[in-house]
Design a protein around this nucleic acid. Structure first.
Lengths: 358, 358
DNA sequence: GTGAAAGCGCTAACAC
DNA sequence: GTGTTAGCGCTTTCAC
């Protein structure tokens, strides 16, 4: 098939024979510990030269087996095709490489069975650490890892059987809400003179914490909050679209401030807003608990909250570095609040479609 | 550290001892080939039970070493944090799993040195196949792979030393341009009565092919095209922003149709468009050679081209499946043209921020 | 119907 | 300054 292929990949034995030395000498040279073994520089040079010309690469299956170390660190995520998790992958790789570990990122599609199977396979490849990000069932993953003595950390979604690092959703929602209120203009209509929250699922931990942050911020500014101000209508764009349409109809206009609980919900909201006359939008201040570079070029100003991916994974690696796996604490990392002027800043760094550049 | 850990992971020898059989029997049972070996059903059952209770998992470093097979298939991409490549990862994983290969996706940050080092490391883990996606230097990667007899395919950016699968940029640009023209309204001003192309870098293969497609489509409809209609101003949003601003000033308004060469350029274009009165936008038909769900909720209709990720990788796997690595052909895959109504369809499936769901 | 033994490629303790 | 040797955990051939 492939041209120029050598029948067999060369091994340290091949090199040893060619160099007229033993395999252990070759091994020492190639592992860089030949000085301790006080191998002659000439021998070392000769072996290195041979390794280069014969394009030798160590077989890490073999060396890993021998050393009972693989050099691998794994991370499972629900999916690659998502802004948040793909930036997790990017940061994870960097942090792993800084530590001379080889990063393995695999998605599990929010399928509990695939999640466990994937973890088992990663373990069978003898990963040394595992980051469990956004898992549907972190505790089952923990059970498997514990049975195989694999150190691990939960990220984004907490579990009870390992240390977890999650976003501080309460704080983020509170800050976003306060900023929205402080930038909004009062309305003469009492129904419209208050902020509203839309999107998400009330039984989700994250949505619940955000609703709490929202409610507390509203109470701090207005002395109270009503149930009708929060509509955890689900994440789908269509649901958010009709939720805001309903709100608009009920209140006779847009409220003074609107807290949208995700970019996907925001898509629906924007679809509805497009049906309104532009000056109506000016009466309302908009915020989104999520970040998207494109959202910053919408026709109205938008406050956004961006999860602190560096912070989340930085903390996860700190736990790994210091081996404090068994605190079983939940560590919260504050997200960032982005104001309209800065919301698009980061977009230039990542999405340039240089993939099609020759 | 971790609680409940057993000091040593169990091996087939442990199971063999517990079951009172030999390691080879255990191996046969766990590999599912005990019927051929005519091992007693009772023995098999007993071994399987023991394997379960002791949470045995095969050591794939060891079995891979012995079988000289790893079960691993690798893919390198420039980065995870990008719509196109993250969806490549997603599709790649699915296609690999369908074939019972374990997928390894690693990013190389468009760093030629990291690219080669990553490939070498993947090879040292004994991947059996490699998909080289969007590489800066595919031919150097090919040389390494060939030296180690690793079968591989280029995707997105072509090379000369292995079969390549790329997007049909010419066709996509041509279709987008024709659709733009046919949906646009004539302008009384001659300067404005023609389509313009903005964004990208003229020396990039992809941009060049798109410019050719654009030019041919314009020529087909208008009988000719002028150099001033194409401005490969670069990918950055700011560059596209000022390019369109310039065009607008020069022509005394927007042209009848505008072809924007990437979503990042589109961001800049939108930023400029926001400075115009809304009715000016109605005079122009907009298209973007790239896809983003958020772009579909902009205040004006937008045609988009989406790369056919399934098609690209489907073809790459077909090449692997049929072992036709050495055609060294460049296979072109047609992208999809999305009209305003359908442009947002796919957004609901992927980006739901369920990552923060408990 | 099952076991013994060799060996995949490498590392590291020990020998000299 | 370098070689010998054992063994990591597994698969597979051959033996009985």
């Amino acid at each position: 098939m492939q041209p120029d292929v050598k029948k067999r990949r060369s091994t340290i034995y091949d090199l040893a024979e060619l160099a007229g030395v033993s395999a252990s000498t070759v091994s020492a040279v190639l592992n860089g510990n030949w000085k301790e073994r006080r191998i002659a520089e000439a021998t070392a040079k000769k072996v290195q030269r041979l390794a280069n010309t014969h394009r030798y690469t160590v077989n890490r299956q073999a060396s890993g087996l021998r050393k009972s170390r693989s050099g691998l660190i794994g991370m499972i995520i629900p999916m690659h095709d998502n802004r948040f998790f793909s930036s997790m992958s990017q940061v994870f790789e960097r942090l792993a490489r800084e530590r001379h570990w080889y990063p393995l990122v695999v998605s599990t599609l929010r399928d509990p069975a695939l999640e466990l199977e994937t973890v088992r396979t990663l373990i069978s490849y003898r990963i040394e650490y595992l980051v469990v990000a956004g898992a549907t069932d972190p505790d089952s993953v923990s059970r498997i890892c514990q049975a195989h003595a694999v150190a691990h950390v939960n990220v984004d979604l907490p579990g009870t059987k390992a240390t977890s690092v999650v976003s501080d959703n309460y704080w983020g929602a509170q800050q976003l809400t306060l900023a929205l209120i402080d930038r909004s203009r009062a309305s003469r209509s009492p129904k419209r003179n208050k902020p509203y929250f839309v999107g998400g699922i009330a039984t989700d931990n994250a949505t619940r914490r955000r609703m709490e942050g929202f409610a507390d911020a509203v109470t701090a500014r207005f002395g109270g909050v009503e149930a009708s101000q929060l509509d955890a209508c689900g994440y789908a764009a269509e649901l958010a679209e009709s939720a805001v349409e309903r709100l608009h109809r009920r209140s006779g206009g847009l409220p003074r401030a609107l807290f949208v609980n995700s970019t996907i919900a925001l898509e629906g909201v924007v679809r509805f807003l497009k049906t309104l006359p532009p000056d109506e939008l000016a009466a309302c201040t908009f915020g989104c608990y999520d970040w998207d570079p494109f959202a910053s070029v919408l026709s109205f100003p938008l406050l956004m909250v961006r999860q602190n991916v560096e912070g989340l994974l930085g903390e996860a690696f700190r736990i790994i570095d210091t081996r404090s796996f068994d605190d079983k604490r939940v560590i919260e990392i504050k997200p960032e609040l982005l104001f309209p002027s800065q919301s698009g800043d980061a977009s230039t760094t990542n999405d340039a479609p240089r993939h099609a550049v020759a």
